[in-house]
């Protein structure tokens, strides 16, 4: 039996009358790439936010690497090896690409109550940053401010920032959002490489990418898990077909 890196039990999250996460249970095995799909409004981002601690569940439990992290604030979860990328690019816009990544490395290399030495001259941090940037193909753009990077480059930078925290589990919230065809292909190739090193939970609308990458897929509809299994099982699952056929938008856009 493979080890569970992440175990979610009976998670509930309501927003007023709306149940965004409805008694959701989920297990992520060490080493797998686990995709989470579902029509718009299925509660995918809400789930990710609860996993990383930006949002607290009303009830239920989250275990990560054998530890109950349900009530842990996000900065502590990051310390345990949980990293996320944001669906809407969330970077430090007035910093350079290298600074963004170096700060992520800094968060995991000793404390930051150091007031004197120049942090931009700390070689280990800079090297870690450049390694992560090289990983995602941004080595040459290291000293460019984020606000001057293209959208595609910002998506790659999101990934580099997450990688620099040396995560055990990478939660990627629609890394392909807004990317063109070639950029998407590059991202898929990149994820194929990364999955060899780190366990990944991938939330994505791009079905082609999901089926190309995932070991297992969980399907969410209205905050509930309606199916979980290998890509082939999901493809042939009647309930999944119904959920997607019922949602014309999802079919025409991603079908």
């Amino acid at each position: 039996m493979a080890e569970h890196l992440l175990r979610v039990e009976n998670l509930m999250r309501r927003f007023g009358g709306l149940v965004a996460t409805d008694n959701l249970s989920l297990e992520v095995v060490t080493g797998e790439l686990h995709a989470i799909i579902g029509p718009n409004g299925a509660g995918k981002t809400t789930l990710i936010s609860q996993l990383t601690g930006q949002l607290m569940p009303n009830s239920g439990a989250i275990h990560f690497a054998g530890q109950d992290i349900t009530t842990l604030p996000s900065y502590k979860r990051s310390g345990l090896g949980l990293a996320r990328s944001f669906q809407i690019t969330s970077l430090l816009r007035d910093f350079t690409a290298a600074d963004n990544v170096a700060l992520a490395a800094q968060a995991h290399a000793g404390h930051s109550y150091r007031f004197w030495g120049n942090a931009r001259k700390e070689a280990p941090l800079r090297e870690a940053a450049h390694a992560a940037l090289a990983r995602v193909g941004l080595a040459k753009r290291a000293d460019v401010p984020v606000s001057e990077l293209s959208h595609g480059e910002q998506r790659e930078l999101e990934l580099a920032v997450a990688l620099a925290t040396k995560p055990k589990l990478l939660l990627l919230d629609e890394p392909m959002a807004g990317l063109g065809v070639t950029e998407s292909q590059r991202m898929v190739a990149l994820l194929k490489e990364l999955r060899k090193e780190v366990t990944i939970v991938l939330v994505e609308h791009d079905m082609e990418a999901v089926f190309a990458l995932a070991d297992r897929i969980t399907v969410l509809v209205y905050g509930r898990v309606i199916a979980c299994g290998k890509p082939d099982e999901i493809r042939n699952n009647d309930e999944v077909k119904r959920a997607y056929l019922g949602d014309q938008h999802a079919v025409t856009r991603h079908g």
Binding site: Q54, S74, Y75, S78, G79, S90, L92, L103, A107, T165
Partner: peptide, 8 residues
């Protein structure tokens, strides 16, 4: 939010 997410 980003700073919290990377561990600060």
């Amino acid at each position: 939010q980003r700073m919290q997410a990377i561990g600060f």
